[in-house]
Amino acid sequence: MRRLFISYARENKPDIESLVRDLESLGYETWLDSSLRGGQKWWDEILQRIADSDVFVTAVSVQSLNSVACRRELEWASALNKPVLPLALGPLPDALPRALSTRQITPYSTSAREAAFALAGALGNLPPAEPVPNPLPQAPSAPLSYLTDLIDHVNQSEPLTHDQQREILVRLEPALDSADPEEARGARYVLETFSKRDDLYADIAQSLEKLGIAALPSAGGGSPAPKPVAAAAHSAGISKGVLGIGAVGLLAAAGVVGFLLTRGGGDSTPPATSGSPAVSTPAAPATDKPASLTGRWSGRVFGDQTLELVADINDGPPLSATVSYPEIPCQCTWTQSGSARGGVRYVTETVDSGPCSRSQITLIPQEDGTISFSSTYYSAEKQRNMTIQGTLSRDGAP
């Protein structure tokens, strides 16, 4: 049975449901992403499904022609030499992208019974799938749509915690430097929407202003930072604005429950974080010309259990590193995303071997010579983002 990957724009879902019924009645196995949530893991799954398919079916419409995700899916299928079947869901513009204009486009609509026969004929004329290239070509980067889970946070009426606000910045700021103009514009739009919230912490508002995004005049008057950060700041007479962009606060209990599900452990209730050394309040670097982080760093990271992290860093720029979690075991690679604004490095962690999950890392150098480490990744089991954090020290440092 030939396996078909179906690429489509969300606006065309009714047509796609009809298409799936027709394909299955013809004896084909179909796959589409309607059952998946957003996240980098979602995008990796899509790329793997395209690689495993026998035919790439692209539902062509005005909406799909404007979809970054659809364009990148087609790019990947073409790079893998997959047979491509374009299906027109309606009238199309005269000018089509080269990837489609050189192919025969089969008309398909739910109102035409003949569409099923045209579909069967088109599939029958396609050549068999070739073996995928070895090694694989460079995979297309995930479109901004994989960050759509952040939209719910940005638009929610309930107050956002400091950790939630930091996560929005950490995940969206690298997209501002994307080579894809549409992705960069999309990231800026989401951050501009975020800036209109009236519960922004002072350091978050300051970070947005550094990006050229003005926050509301009332920003910076958000809820107090999570205890014991607020207590420490109050006793020292320090305002929230002095805490800096690196103030990650405490891990919420819900934010660490799924750590072992993707890092190799169980589902026990996380320990109270107030006694954990991972919840110190790091200060933001004071310079835009950060000192080099080149060298070997190690430390404990905290989730449902404590794990050792070892990173051999080459600070470039851009920063890169080989990373291991020996107790799992797991081997990973770090690659810097965007520039080092204010000394903070935003890093993507990809998995080379072991049960780790791809994640987004924030590295914040501290005045005492350590690095504040924070990692956000998507747990398929929990169907939400998880966060772990810790402090890394340079090997050989006193």
Rank of each mutant, 00 (worst) to 15 (best):
R2L: 04
R3V: 10
R3N: 11
F5C: 07
R10F: 08
L19T: 10
R21W: 03
L23I: 01
L26D: 08
Y28G: 00
T30E: 08
S34G: 03
R49H: 07
I50A: 04
F56K: 03
Q63T: 07
A69Q: 06
E75S: 13
L85N: 01
D94C: 00
L123D: 03
G124A: 10
Y146V: 15
T148A: 02
D152W: 10
H162N: 10
E167Q: 15
A179V: 09
D180M: 07
G186P: 06
V190D: 11
Y201T: 05
A205P: 08
A214S: 09
A215I: 02
S218G: 01
G222H: 05
A225Y: 15
V229A: 12
A232I: 08
A233V: 04
G237D: 02
K240H: 07
V242I: 11
A254K: 12
V257R: 07
G258K: 08
L261P: 12
T262H: 12
G266R: 13
D267M: 01
S268E: 11
P271K: 13
S274Q: 09
S276E: 11
P277K: 06
S280V: 05
P282Q: 11
P282T: 08
A284R: 05
P285Q: 12
K289H: 11
D312W: 00
D312L: 00
N314V: 04
C330K: 03
T333S: 12
Q336T: 07
E349C: 02
V351D: 01
V351E: 00
S359L: 10
Q360S: 07
S375P: 00
G390S: 06
D395L: 12
D395S: 15
A397R: 11
